[in-house]
Design a binder for these strands. Structure first.
Lengths: 105, 105
DNA sequence: TTGACATGCAACTATTTAGCTGCATAATAA
DNA sequence: TTATTATGCAGCTAAATAGTTGCATGTCAA
């Protein structure tokens, strides 16, 4: 889970996920285009995404095709974010507001 | 949004959010306890969380009370994660599996 | 076979980050 | 007032990170 959060922390890596969401099975060379960065840098980012399980790869001759895997994102959403954005969090926000009201008196 | 992702990338900061979810309005000194780290380090983490809008603070005498703010998390969940964990992503995963099947022939 | 193409591996640099120590400031309590 | 407590600010170090270049390897196509 920590690897997933760390992987998502970089804007370049989030952009890569975005592009894979738009079109699966892209090669490294294809993904480099438009990022304003060298091939090796993008390869590093993709390796981090792969290490976090966010991207799965598949060799096809000399090309390495990259596929988005959304399972880790769904895990984060389910096991972590939901606790914060759910009803309980809203209740706590209300409590905070109540405390602030109290403070302003 | 980038600030939010970066703030969530650190396990100590996620732990801080967890603890604030459990009990709002804690002081810095209170939050230091159990993290195995100096007060100033925790203060830096809290400053980053505050900078990302994930924590709001309120002075009460010499004590600075910390409150969880879930809005940025909800934003991430709504504007970013939903695109990946939704039905479209599932369809793409199926497509990926289909491609892999095809590859194995 | 030869040349072009796709990728990997290794080493280097600069920047950011996480933690620390030391001192200063402000508020509470005796 | 004086001592204690809560926090902030500044500076330092070590480690991690993001980017680079250069070279090696393996595949496809002529």
């Amino acid at each position: 889970m920590d690897a997933t959060f760390k992987a998502l922390a970089d804007p370049t890596r989030r952009a890569l996920l975005d592009r894979l969401l738009g079109k699966q099975g892209q090669t490294l060379t294809e993904l480099v285009d438009g990022l304003g960065m060298r091939r090796q840098s993008v390869a590093k980012h993709l390796a981090i995404l792969e290490g976090a399980g966010l991207v799965s790869c598949q060799w096809h001759g000399r090309e390495k095709l990259h596929y988005l895997n959304t399972v880790p994102i769904a895990e984060i959403s389910r096991r972590w974010l939901d606790r914060f954005s759910g009803q309980r969090a809203a209740a706590i926000l209300n409590l905070r507001d109540a405390l602030q009201e109290n403070e302003n008196e």
